[in-house]
């Protein structure tokens, strides 16, 4: 049970129905995935539901996943499914109004980041948060509505009475700026 088993190795073991490997992967991602799902659905019960569905998917789909070098990262696969499931949940159950305070804010975790990966993720996350913070309000809004709330561009346009072309250009500008910002932070700071 080396702490060092790669995600790819764990996925290969999970494909062979190795439940210890699933547990290890679970431990590795539990907090990050839960926090991400919670950020989207903003409900503790629903978040657990979504995370459960996610790990059932991981268990059932590991055998279909490519784990060679050419394949994408396991973590981005996991977060993509997490976001899709979360947004499905929102579409089925409705979204809370934006003003609602995150109830989880009260139970924010002070737990230290233990593994090297967690530390690195924490750092990358901080850098990206900074870059997000520097977007203008319009750009922040479209990123929030689309990425975290799961609205489509058409829905954003209709609900907020913004021409579709404007929604598109805001997204374009936001992402261009994020990339620029993040690229330079990346070059100065963390190793690749």
């Amino acid at each position: 049970m080396g702490e060092s088993a790669s995600d790819e190795l764990l996925i290969r073991l999970i494909a062979e129905r190795d439940s210890a490997a699933l547990e290890q992967l679970y431990d590795r991602y539990e907090r990050q995935v839960y926090a991400f799902v919670f950020r989207i659905v903003r409900d503790a019960m629903a978040s657990e539901e979504v995370v459960q569905e996610l790990f059932i998917r991981v268990w059932n789909s590991a055998g279909r996943l490519r784990t060679d070098e050419a394949a994408g990262k396991i973590s981005s696969w996991i977060f993509t499914i997490a976001r899709n499931l979360s947004i499905d949940w929102l579409r089925k159950h409705g979204r809370k109004p934006l003003e609602t305070k995150e109830e989880g804010a009260l139970e924010r975790e002070a737990a230290p980041y233990s593994t090297e990966q967690e530390v690195e993720h924490k750092m990358l996350g901080e850098q990206m948060k900074e870059a997000l913070g520097e977007l203008n309000e319009d750009q922040k809004q479209v990123v929030e509505l689309i990425y975290f709330m799961g609205y489509t561009q058409q829905e954003v346009s209709q609900r907020h009475d913004i021409p579709l072309g404007t929604v598109k250009s805001r997204v374009r500008l936001a992402l261009t700026q994020l990339r620029k910002k993040f690229d330079s932070t990346w070059k100065e700071g963390a190793s690749p």
Partner: peptide, 9 residues
């Protein structure tokens, strides 16, 4: 996904 606030499960 790494930008979100940590929340205790």
């Amino acid at each position: 996904p790494l930008t979100v606030e940590p929340v205790a499960p």
